[in-house]
Write a protein that binds this DNA or RNA. Structure first.
Lengths: 158, 158
DNA sequence: AGCTAGTTGACATCATCATGTCAAGATGTG
DNA sequence: CACATCTTGACATGATGATGTCAACTAGCT
């Protein structure tokens, strides 16, 4: 008993979302195995990426915001990374509790090893696809992301 | 210390993957809230979808394969759905233990309610995007998915 | 019939993530 | 300084997912 229907764009978007679910899961699993030899996971790798690209050391909450992830989960991951000597906490001149997260030499080596393993695999995965269509895909998902962020933010207003 | 680099397609794919991570998470969260009023979640909704589209009743393991998900997790979800009267188990003439999963009237109502709530929202999310570019995005992610499935299958051979 | 291999559901464990709460600390306003 | 508000890390809980193991069951082969 369907009372509503979708237009062509809605149908196409539905296909895209279902494909995205599986592609996302596969990519995370694939990434987990790719960087496992360096003591990393997809989640840890993403956190390290945020630390590397931030230029200057940040507290955990900022990293979480950058990633669009939950503060609490990023905190746990960073604590694990600290336990294993991949990052260290440095004093924050602006906040007594919110320590700054900094990569250690070992952390830098793990991150570089992950990137160097990843790069040729990324090229291989993209083979046969044109840069234009990949960018189109990226743009569509970015639009989806923006709209969903807008909707979920709007909910919070309540 | 980077020894490897990526070509233009590899760079674009990397952007796409990072965007996909966030779009995927946002979509799941958005879907969870969308169907929560009907006692569903994104995961339950996907399982119900597999049951509905299968035409004929299937055992849990088949549903899991359809979804590309783990048998054990789908089992848990189906058991929960059974607990709440959304599905029932029927005897399987071909297998004494592998019962067939069938939607109840209540389950059908919940699924229809979810779809009817979703349809107009999908159209709205797709607004301003052309059907062609959405389909391009779907095709790119489908290619990514196929290649990752291939790589992960190849690993299993070891 | 008997054996082997694959399938299936049940059970268990661990990692990840969403969410809520709390206290310490920072910031802005008066 | 006093107060309210926001930020931040610590702690806890439940949902979801990946993974492994086991016993029941099926199917194929001899």
């Amino acid at each position: 008993m369907n009372l509503t229907t979708r237009n062509a764009a809605g149908d196409a978007l539905t296909d895209l979302i279902l494909t995205m679910f599986r592609a996302n899961n596969l990519t995370v699993t694939w990434g987990d195995r790719l960087v496992a030899p360096f003591g990393l996971t997809s989640a840890r790798w993403q956190v390290l990426g945020a630390i590397v690209f931030a230029e200057r050391p940040q507290p955990v909450a900022w990293i979480a915001r950058d990633l669009g992830a939950n503060r609490q989960n990023v905190q746990r991951i960073v604590n694990d990374l600290h336990q294993e000597g991949i990052v260290v906490f440095e004093p924050n001149p602006h906040h007594r509790r919110a320590h700054l997260v900094v990569l250690t030499e070992q952390g830098r080596r793990a991150y570089d090893a992950a990137v160097n393993t990843y790069n040729p695999r990324a090229d291989a995965l993209a083979e046969g696809l044109s840069v234009e269509e990949i960018k189109t895909a990226q743009r569509v998902l970015a639009t989806l992301r923006e709209r969903l962020e807008g909707e979920l933010d709007a909910e919070k207003q309540l």
